[in-house]
Simulated assay, not measured.
Amino acid sequence: MLFGTEKTFAIEAMSEPDLAPPSAVWGRMRVWCQGMPIGDFFAKQCALYPSYVNFRLLRERLALLWLAEFEGMSAISLWNHLDGLLYGFHGDVELTDVRTLEECRQASEKYGRFDFLTNWGEQFDDNGKSFILCTPAGEVKVLNWSLAKEEELRARLPDVLQSISEFMNWFESEARRLNGGPKDHLTA
Rank of each mutant, 00 (worst) to 15 (best):
F171G: 07
D184I: 06
R59E: 04
E12A: 08
V160E: 05
W120Q: 11
M14E: 09
E150K: 05
G91Q: 01
E12T: 10
L117I: 13
S23G: 14
F114I: 07
S15K: 00
S23Y: 02
G121F: 02
E16Q: 08
R176P: 00
I11R: 10
K7L: 07
M168K: 06
K7R: 12
V160I: 14
E16A: 15
E152T: 15
L78C: 06
T5R: 14
L153G: 10
L95E: 02
G88I: 02
L95M: 09
L117K: 02
P182D: 11
T5E: 14
A188N: 00
A20R: 15
L78R: 02
V142N: 03
L153T: 07
L186K: 06
G91W: 01
E139G: 02
P22F: 06
Q45T: 08
D40R: 04
R56I: 02
F3V: 04
R30N: 13
G27H: 00
N144A: 07
S51K: 10
Q123T: 12
A155N: 01
E69C: 13
S15L: 05
V31S: 11
A107E: 03
P21M: 14
F124R: 11
F131V: 01
L157I: 00
E172G: 04
E103W: 02
V93E: 13
L48C: 04
V142P: 06
A47F: 10
Y49K: 12
P182Y: 14
T118M: 03
L153D: 03
L2C: 05
F116N: 01
L85T: 03
Q45R: 07
W32H: 03
C33K: 04
T135F: 11
F55I: 08
P136R: 12
L133H: 10
A63F: 00
I164W: 10
V142S: 12
A107N: 10
K110M: 12
I132Y: 06
